[in-house]
Amino acid sequence: MDQDRHTIVRVIGVKKDFALGKQTVHVLKGVDLEVYAGEYISIMGPSGSGKSTLFNMIGGLDKPTDGKVFIDEVDISQLDAYELAWLRNRKIGYIFQTFNLIPVMTALENVTLPMTFAGMNGDDAMEKGIELLKLVGLGERFQHKPLELSGGQQQRVAIARSLANDPAIILADEPTGNLDLSTGEEIIELCRMLSEERGVTIISATHDYKMLNVSDRVVWIRDGMIDKIQHREDLDISVGGIGGPENGHVPGGEAP
């Protein structure tokens, strides 16, 4: 079902080495991955598996030692500082585990900042910011500073901010890692809704098994390599009961 879709992220033979004193650590040992536009992908793996490193490569936050990362058919290792900034501004929205809102700005200002960078005028940005905050369910709290909001609310602001310039990809780095169970579920539900209704590609690095239910595909990373890639249909068989109540409406018997 994916073949006819536009490939938004293409990772080809990516290797990453880190120098640790005199030793060289091979964190990624050659990863190939294609992500299609509109997909919801989860990257799973234990800590130290290279999950975060791969994630940072896709986000243009780090450059590979070897291999190529294409975002929207543009090789990001060829980009200069300006082009990278443009890419981060327009093409990619980031959601972090620790929310990372700018503490001196209100929720609305946090959301409008990327629009300001993109050169949108103040009133338009304000209007769109309020609209986005309403979308994530924070319509009446836009004048609050981040510290006056709960963790879940801060993450909602962060999600609204990631959508500011209508990016093609949203990168979520453990978005539920600092949230309790039910708040985490709300955030996951919000991500799923965005992916379905707005057609945003969501790539999330996570430990959270709740994420699996909403993912189109799950990429398992182990020891710097892709261990396996599972489609959602296959997933429910192999993970079994972990899916919980949502198991019911996903057809189970389609895997080969």
């Binding site: 938004i8 536009a37 900034a85 443009w86 890419l87 093409k91 300001t116 379905e196």
Partner: peptide, 27 residues
């Protein structure tokens, strides 16, 4: 699933980007 991907697909080159990313002095 209705997933409509839209938007511009190419990164502007050189000059265009310098104009594309801005922070007004007032801001």
């Amino acid at each position: 699933m209705s997933k409509n991907f839209s938007g511009t697909r190419s990164v502007p080159q050189g000059e265009a980007i310098q104009r594309a990313i801005s922070l007004p002095w007032a801001k």
